[in-house]
């Protein structure tokens, strides 16, 4: 480890484990430079976020563009309790199924809106991954995550292009 390790809280919202596996794979891939703390959003006490400075949300999408059912109460708690997240920067990786064109990967957008409403600042664009087209979400997320880390480390070097991995279903 040549440089100081970045402490990152990874918040996972998952239906069938895909988002959790992606978080674990990113941890394995970047463990040299990042100290990962993986936490399921369904088990998060939202007030604890006030003490955090950097978080990555990895969320799947359920139903008609919703967050996973198990994490829905946490999303509601964020909206109701409105913790002061003025010192929190965050990134979002949103997983979806391109079969559902109208609501593709909207799960992550819900977290984005709720966190922003609490005063947190999103860094980088939301990464949307189509799990129907991408064999391994890690391949799609690795490059984005590397750029996101660089942007977080250097506030001047923010990437701007909207990003979608796995191409367009049509």
């Amino acid at each position: 480890m040549g440089q100081q390790s970045i402490s990152l809280l990874v918040l996972v919202a998952t239906m069938t484990g895909t988002a959790e596996i992606l978080a674990e794979d990113l941890e394995r891939e970047f463990s040299d430079t990042v100290d990962f703390r993986i936490q399921l959003l369904e088990e998060l006490e939202v007030g604890a976020l006030e003490r955090e400075s950097l978080a990555l949300v990895v969320s799947s999408t359920y139903g008609t563009g919703d967050v996973p059912e198990t994490a829905e109460p946490t999303l509601q708690a964020l909206k109701d309790a409105r913790p002061d997240l003025g010192s929190l920067s965050y990134g979002i990786i949103s997983l979806g199924d391109g079969t559902y064109v109208n609501t593709f990967a909207r799960g992550g957008d819900n977290w984005d809106e709720a966190l922003a409403a609490c005063g947190a600042t999103r860094r980088g664009e939301v990464l949307k991954v189509d799990c129907l087209l991408v064999e391994d979400p890690l391949e799609a997320a690795k490059e984005w995550f590397g750029r996101w880390l660089a942007a977080v480390a250097d506030p001047q070097a923010e990437g701007s292009a909207a990003h979608r991995a796995g191409g367009s279903p049509g």
Partner: peptide
């Protein structure tokens, strides 16, 4: 024709 739903096999294979 719901291969997106069937993709959970990747997680279970792990």
């Amino acid at each position: 024709d719901h291969q997106g739903t069937k993709a959970v096999t990747r997680n279970l294979a792990r």
